[in-house]
């Protein structure tokens, strides 16, 4: 059984995708044009995250990776795209040597090299999508466009919260979002609007948004382990919330694939404990005010209702201390 040993946080704050821009948060169609369209990203935690991801894929293959047999061609399209992006952005870390259909991919960070025949899955140790995805720390989900919807046909998911590649396999965009209380500030249902927006995404013009959640002393929450993390949430107190509660952020990217017309959904998951919010006063202030104003259905859905009050109380105490210190410095 998989353990929760992995305990890491973002150390380079400049790469942390802080989610809040205003002092309260509601669901919306918050997609923005993506500026750096290359999805490959090497952070100080790259190796740690990739190794954790591979361990999960090996320990729980059924949970973490799912695909339909008819997706092989799309899998090669994905492999080619990410390997080329890697080489393009980090030629010192990655190499791709093409000799007709004989390709060699080198990952110099992990000191790995693989030669294979493009188009022949038997020349790789895993399915092409699974193999390629194991070189990057993100989660990768391929949503295939059929009629006016998107269907999950491949998923390699090790980090995303409440996201089971196993359960969601074959579901439409609408079915996947069934559990989400997906209403906007003025009460509109967002499912149709967002799906229509995705239908309009063009190849070469990816979009991005940020999703967030709070984790109680855990980095992995999924339906498969709900019996474990469900009860643990009540162990959070205002005294331990600073260390144990982490802001968990998914920086999401959406790419239209030019050959298959599918949408590739990429998730970069990062964590920062509440106590680190103080490293950027602006983040601390936004965090404190957003958490005081979470609508009940959203808190219930996100699974944070059992420890939200303790987290807010922790932030209130820190805020009080910081304000007192500021007054003392002025007076002193």
């Amino acid at each position: 059984m998989f353990t929760q040993e992995l305990d890491f946080k973002t150390t380079d704050l400049d790469t942390f995708p802080f989610p809040f821009r205003s002092d309260n948060y509601r669901y919306s169609n918050d997609l923005r044009r993506l500026e750096d369209t290359n999805l490959v990203l090497i952070t100080p935690e790259y190796e740690l995250q990739v190794r954790a991801k591979r361990r999960l894929l090996d320990e729980q293959p059924e949970v973490r990776y799912q695909s339909f047999p008819h997706t092989m061609e799309m899998q090669w399209e994905f492999l080619e795209m990410v390997f080329e992006m890697a080489v393009d952005k980090y030629p010192e870390h990655f190499e791709l040597i093409k000799n007709g259909d004989e390709w060699t991919f080198k990952n110099n960070i992990l000191k790995e090299e693989q030669t294979f025949t493009f188009g022949d899955p038997s020349t790789l140790p895993y399915e092409p999508y699974d193999f390629a995805g194991r070189h990057f720390h993100q989660d990768f989900v391929l949503m295939v466009n059929r009629n006016d919807n998107f269907y999950l046909e491949i998923g390699q998911v090790s980090y995303a919260a409440l996201f089971s590649a196993h359960w969601n396999k074959g579901m439409s965009f609408d079915e996947i979002h069934g559990p989400v209380p997906f209403v906007s500030r003025n009460g509109d249902n967002l499912i149709d609007r967002v799906r229509k927006f995705l239908l309009g995404i063009n190849p070469g013009e990816p979009w991005t948004r940020i999703n967030w959640n709070l984790m109680a002393d855990r980095w992995d929450v999924n339906y498969e382990t709900m019996d474990v993390w469900g009860p643990e949430r009540s162990l959070i107190t205002p005294e331990n919330a600073g260390k144990l509660v982490r802001l968990r952020v998914e920086e999401q990217k959406f790419y239209r694939m030019s050959r298959s017309n599918a949408i590739l959904f990429v998730l970069n998951t990062q964590f920062l404990p509440l106590e680190d919010m103080q490293l950027r006063q602006e983040w601390f202030d936004l965090m404190y005010s957003v958490l005081q104003d979470i609508p009940e259905p959203m808190a219930e859905y996100k699974g944070i209702a059992p420890f939200l009050p303790q987290s807010v109380e922790y932030l209130r105490r820190v805020d009080e201390k910081l304000k007192k210190q500021a007054v003392e410095t002025q007076e002193g």
Binding site: M171, G178, P179, P231, S234
Partner: peptide, 30 residues
């Protein structure tokens, strides 16, 4: 052996409603 709460979402691929695992109160909280 798992205790499951019967969820409201159905999967055509898995052919069932989602069963969320939970620990019954009497077995205590780990």
């Amino acid at each position: 052996g798992a205790h499951l709460e019967v969820g409201p979402f159905y999967s055509k691929v898995r052919k069932g409603y989602i069963g969320y695992p939970f620990v019954p109160k009497t077995e205590g909280v780990k």
